[in-house]
Amino acid sequence: MNFNAVWLIAQKELRDALRNRWFLLYTVIFGGLVLALSMLSRPDVEFTQLAEYNRTVTGLVNLVLLFVPLMALTFGASSISGERETGALKYLLAQPVDRGEVLFGKFLGLASAQLSTLLLGFGVAGVILSTRGGGDGLSGYVVMTGMACLLSLAMLSVGFLISALAHKTSTALGAALFLWLLLVFIGDLGLIGAAIVTQMPTQTTLLLAMINPLQLFKMASIFSALSSLEVLGPAGLYASDTFGGMFMPLMLAGLVLWILLPLGLAQFAFARQGDGA
């Protein structure tokens, strides 16, 4: 693999993203909500700081769950299919590059843009939290930021897989939005319904929920920020009791798998599509 070409394509993707109005809109909205969330607080009296910090952190988790997959999936989904539709991809592939370099270059560029948005949001929130004395939860906050970055990469990776499989941007975006709905709402709703109707055992509910990368991120973030999964009820306690010290490595491995597997499949599909591009 020629890393010069990968880097060049990544730069091009990043430059495109920074000029993309949708991307800027996402960034502004995410940053604004993070800012608002971290600035919301009650009067500073003794004993409330930690609780406020925890509330901000769980609010951030909620925000990441809603925004990051939407942003990453849609940008990932339009990454290849968009250029395929305009013919730019065909022209690029006629140059001395191979498909792997194009795919990874695009992934690297878009990932940099996504992570930049996330780090900007978390950085701003962190600065505001630091003025309110949020020093105790620093390590948890850093871990949560890292997990949010991994979730972003995982969703981007899934978006790339969609993009590699779809021939039209509209199809890819439709699939991405459906997947977003599935991961954020429909999947959990379905599982809640199934858990209630079938009286599903705690461990089954937990394991099924853990298929969803968003749940992996949520559990890992809450665990790292609050040092416990108590707030997630019996299933949360079951998770921390069952996995013990392996809980965080397991969550980490799950998210990494969600990055590598779809990206690998995207590369496989893209490489086999000698006919499609």
Binding site: F185, D188, Q215, L232, G233, G236
Partner: peptide
């Protein structure tokens, strides 16, 4: 159904 507390702190709660 206490087990579904697992889904708290997520957008699905707002959806419900």
């Amino acid at each position: 159904y206490p087990v579904i507390q697992l889904f708290a702190y997520g957008p699905v709660v707002q959806a419900i």
